[in-house]
C-alpha cells in the first residue's frame, strides 16, 4: 500500500496541477491492507476536475461498485504520468476530456455510458480502456477485491494451500489424476 500513500509524493517538487484524494472506506478490501489511511495522488498534467472526470470514466468503463476509488486512482496516476511526459498524449487527453464535457462526472451512469459510446472509436477512449486493463487489475487493492492470491512460491505454492480443495464436484479417479506428494 505504500505504493498509494506515497503515490508520487517525491514528484511534489515539480509543480502539481491537481490532486485526487480519498479515505480508505472502512470494511472495503483495501481497509485490510491500509486501515484508516487517507490516500492522495498528485497530478502533474491534469487539473483536479479533469482527474475526477477521468476517474469517473474509469468507473464507467470498468464499474466495480465496491472497489475503492484508490484502485481507480492508480489508473489516473498512470495516464497522468504518460501525459506529463508526452505533449501529443496530453493533447489527446485534453481534447478527449473536452469531448465528454465538464458535467461528465456528475451525470448518471446511463448518460456516461451514452457519452462514451459516442467516442468509443477514439484514441482517447481506447487508450483509457487499455490503461484500465493494465493497471486496475494488477495491484494489491484489486488482488484483495477479486480474491486473487497471486504469487505463491514464497509460501510453498498452492500444493498445501487449496489447489484441490474444490468439493462441489466429484473427485477425479486416480487413474486420470495423480498421487499427492507425501504430506500434501
Amino acid at each position: 500500500m505504500d505504493q498509494l500513500v506515497t503515490l508520487n509524493r517525491r514528484e511534489l517538487l515539480k509543480s502539481t496541477t491537481g490532486l485526487l484524494m480519498g479515505w480508505v472506506v472502512a470494511g472495503s478490501p483495501l481497509a485490510l491492507i491500509a486501515p484508516g489511511r487517507a490516500w492522495a495522488v498528485d497530478l502533474t498534467a491534469f487539473t483536479s476536475s479533469e482527474g475526477a472526470a477521468l476517474l469517473s470514466m474509469a468507473r464507467t468503463i470498468a464499474p466495480h461498485d465496491k472497489l475503492d476509488d484508490a484502485a481507480y486512482a492508480l489508473v489516473i496516476q498512470s495516464v497522468d504520468g504518460d501525459a506529463s511526459k508526452d505533449a501529443n498524449t496530453l493533447k489527446m487527453f485534453k481534447e478527449g476530456l473536452a469531448s465528454i464535457g465538464t458535467s461528465f462526472a456528475a451525470s448518471s451512469e446511463s448518460e456516461r455510458v451514452e457519452a462514451l459510446e459516442k467516442i468509443e472509436s477514439s484514441a482517447f477512449f481506447q487508450t483509457m480502456r487499455v490503461k484500465i486493463l493494465q493497471v486496475l487489475y494488477s495491484n494489491p487493492i484489486a488482488y484483495a477485491y477479486f480474491g486473487y492470491e497471486g504469487e505463491a512460491f514464497s509460501k510453498g505454492g498452492y500444493l498445501r494451500r487449496g489447489f484441490n480443495n474444490l468439493r462441489w464436484l466429484p473427485e477425479v479417479p486416480t487413474e486420470d489424476s495423480g498421487p499427492l506428494p507425501a504430506g500434501a
Binding site: 489447489f163 480443495n165 474444490l166 464436484l169 477425479v172 486420470d176 498421487p179
Partner: peptide, 27 residues
Amino acid sequence: VPGLPASNNFKVMYAGAKKLGYKRVHT
C-alpha cells in the same frame, strides 16, 4: 512417471467432460 494430481480447475473440466461422454480425459 505418475500423472500430476488434479487441481480445482481440472475437477471442473473433468466433471463436464465425463457428463458429455468424453473418455480420454486426464491431467
